[in-house]
Design a protein around this nucleic acid. Sequence first.
DNA 1: CGACACCTTGAAGAGGTTCAAGAAATGTGG
DNA 2: CCACATTTCTTGAACCTCTTCAAGGTGTCG
Lengths: 239, 239
Amino acid sequence: MNHETIKVACSNCNLRELCMPIGLNHDELNRIDDLVATRRHVKRGDTLFRSGDKFSSLYAIRTGFFKTCVATEDGRDQVTGFQMAGEVIGLDGIVSDNHSCDAVALEDAEVCVMPYDRIEDLSREVHGLQRHVHKIMSREIVREHGVMLLLGSMRAEERLAAFLLNLVQRLHARGFSQSELILRMSREEIGSFLGMKIETVSRTFSKFADEGIVEVKQRHVRIMNTQALKDIVNPQACV
Amino acid sequence: MNHETIKVACSNCNLRELCMPIGLNHDELNRIDDLVATRRHVKRGDTLFRSGDKFSSLYAIRTGFFKTCVATEDGRDQVTGFQMAGEVIGLDGIVSDNHSCDAVALEDAEVCVMPYDRIEDLSREVHGLQRHVHKIMSREIVREHGVMLLLGSMRAEERLAAFLLNLVQRLHARGFSQSELILRMSREEIGSFLGMKIETVSRTFSKFADEGIVEVKQRHVRIMNTQALKDIVNPQACV
DNA sequence: CGACACCTTGAAGAGGTTCAAGAAATGTGG
DNA sequence: CCACATTTCTTGAACCTCTTCAAGGTGTCG
């Protein structure tokens, strides 16, 4: 067993608890290792897959940061999410055997390539994996419900506050600061995700800064008052 | 084999091709019949499940019409979708073992109750079913991408036009008219789904009517000019 | 250093919301 | 079956949030 083999094993991966089921026995863990065919590096700005591409695999993000976005013929573009280490992308491709969105690396990234055939085969044999795959999909559905709520019912400040809280919470779950973060995406991309124009994003950041809620220096953000952000998102609760 | 048994069998259901995998052999078809534990009637206005409810089953709609919606503590409410015969609801519950949205019948409905345990067990044995379950989830993810695009980048008229086209297309796939439909939901619910106020929904309907694109009489809508609606959704393509 | 992409800010304008009132449909009880 | 209450929908006018247009600032990289 050479070094590379060890490196590729899920059973040795420190992200395992994020992207793989827990509570598997030794035998099951060994089988899970077969899921990852290869690793793939994606340079910042490059696409992992593109709308229309043949679907073959799901991808677990090991390092780096992605956006996914859908586009229409007439040039409309919508960022549908930002994904970080431990998250799985590519689920959109299952239904039609083709991807229906683009996945673009916002910083140099490495992903584990998990051929869908293998996932299917293995999750018919390992109940824990089957369950896990279903949960990942269900989680994505629920996440998107949250985005729909945001886009359908929140105003600009509420959207940006919710966005920042969500980002920092996910980063914190990965061992990063609760209050400081580096935005890997541009204002444009934030705006696309939140359904607002770049100028509105910028203005809203400035407003938060004026109010002492955050400190913003380009893409470096420090949250000075988390509660204030929560109160903005959930106006009722702060009376 | 009594009459009731025949009625409950998926293999005899005329909606089979909508909610069940196709291309199964005889043996597999018989096993699929075990998926549906019971049928359940839901009266107009009643909920099939509610946010917080324990998750146990997925539901295939046999007849009737549902909305799903998420809510926040502070009273925000967002309709996340409208579902009709042949569509499956309840996927939101898988990830946390609890439902995270409400499913409300907008007209008297009947659903097939498919206990999730059985789906798991059976889809480990019937490859076609496994594949089908994955596709259903993936389809829902892709659908929600479309809604995000709508909410994030479209203006009121575009949203309503896209909504009508989507509805009528789905109804047509079920054998109904391409141009006429009865809205099962209120203006309020349309507005919630599309991220607009009820007054805006009403005004936009009136505008379409003034322009001769649709005829609207309360909840009865007749589409007079489908192309015009398409041109509204896709402004580039109509130059 | 200069070119370029990215971000911020101001002012004017448009689209959608809010508030208010009335009309149309639906439901209820006598 | 009708009168009345209630819900749902429509329409108008004022207002507000966000967008658009424009210009200038900041940071980055060859």
